[in-house]
């Protein structure tokens, strides 16, 4: 059978068993092509048209006009490029802070502590509550008029309008909520990684007189490589594409838009003076794709390098 490699081992007896792997593979691959790959390729095609997404509306081929408008036209390109940079900033900050905090929490909870399960559960709870409940909780928590965070700020002599105020702080609060909501996943993945480390390694190093930092650097960190890689990739890809919290917490507010939200807003008529511009939105999402691709590629290289270095 041509389709199978020579190393395929199973059942030469009947035709059915020979075809079985192919037939069972087909549903998964078919779904993947239909739902992910096909539409993604179609997005590329869309991005060269003025499609509105309305049934019956004519679709014209307009070449690179959407890209030209997104990247180069007037001042709106500045706003779009700002949104692109903001997406990057969001991703970098979320990835690194969430990674670090998740690691710290995991290290703390990997000790023999009373109430360990309680803390672990507590930090994981936002994950299961979902983005809407997370958002509502924090909107309430960040009420500028007498909310809890406002009173904390007050004791330090500070004042902030939080989500309703300046775009800078509002954006940063979304970062805070994003990390608050997802650090639980990072933490448990690290915890699981730490559980797989052979304790004899620590014993041996202690006998050699290694201190806490030494132990972490020479044993925990390299041994955690699979967990680190998983977290790293999950955080990067997740944060580059995450924008639902922006929708829930801020709405489409000038100075806080990220690319994912921009695609949704342009394609599906959100915003102040909506018109339906799915072609333009498709171009924006291709820009987002290229961004994720480049960053993902670099991250993947780094992850592979780490794996080769530490895991052989």
């Amino acid at each position: 059978m041509a389709i199978m490699n020579k190393n395929y081992l199973f059942g030469s007896s009947s035709k059915w068993t020979r075809y079985a792997p192919v037939m069972l593979l087909v549903p998964g691959v078919f779904l993947y092509i239909m739902i992910a790959l096909g539409p993604s390729l179609a997005t590329t095609v869309y991005s060269f048209t003025d499609a509105s997404g309305l049934r019956g509306a004519p679709v014209n081929w307009i070449g690179l006009d959407n890209y030209d408008e997104f990247l180069f036209q007037g001042a709106v390109s500045r706003d779009n490029i700002d949104a692109t940079l903001r997406t990057l900033r969001f991703s970098v900050l979320v990835t690194f802070i969430q990674f670090t905090l998740g690691l710290i929490l995991a290290l703390l909870l990997n000790q023999k502590l009373r109430g360990r399960t309680f803390f672990r559960t507590l930090f994981f709870i936002p994950v299961i509550l979902g983005v809407v409940i997370q958002g509502l909780m924090w909107k309430l928590f960040l009420q500028p008029r007498g909310g809890p965070m406002a009173s904390i700020f007050e004791t330090f002599g500070l004042q902030s309008e939080f989500l309703g105020g300046l775009p800078g702080p509002a954006f940063n609060w979304v970062i805070v909520v994003q990390i608050w909501a997802n650090v639980g996943v990072t933490m448990v993945i690290f915890l699981a990684g730490m559980q797989t480390i052979n304790t004899d390694l620590y014993e041996a190093a202690r006998i050699d007189g290694a201190g806490g930092w030494e132990l972490f650097r020479s044993i925990t960190w390299p041994q955690l490589t699979p967990a680190i890689n998983t977290n790293f990739l999950l955080n990067i890809v997740g944060s580059l594409q995450a924008w639902q919290l922006f929708l829930v917490l801020l709405g489409y507010k000038p100075g806080t838009q990220v690319l994912g939200y921009l695609v949704f807003a342009e394609g599906f008529g959100q915003g102040d003076s909506p018109s339906f511009r799915q072609g333009f939105a498709a171009a924006a999402s291709i820009v987002l794709f290229l961004l994720v691709l480049v960053i993902g590629f670099v991250a993947n290289k780094y992850v592979n390098w780490r794996e080769e270095r530490y895991m052989g």
Partner: peptide
């Protein structure tokens, strides 16, 4: 596919 563009529009 990890990096594919969000295909909201053709999917719709």
């Amino acid at each position: 596919a990890l990096f594919l563009p969000p295909a909201l529009i053709p999917q719709f």
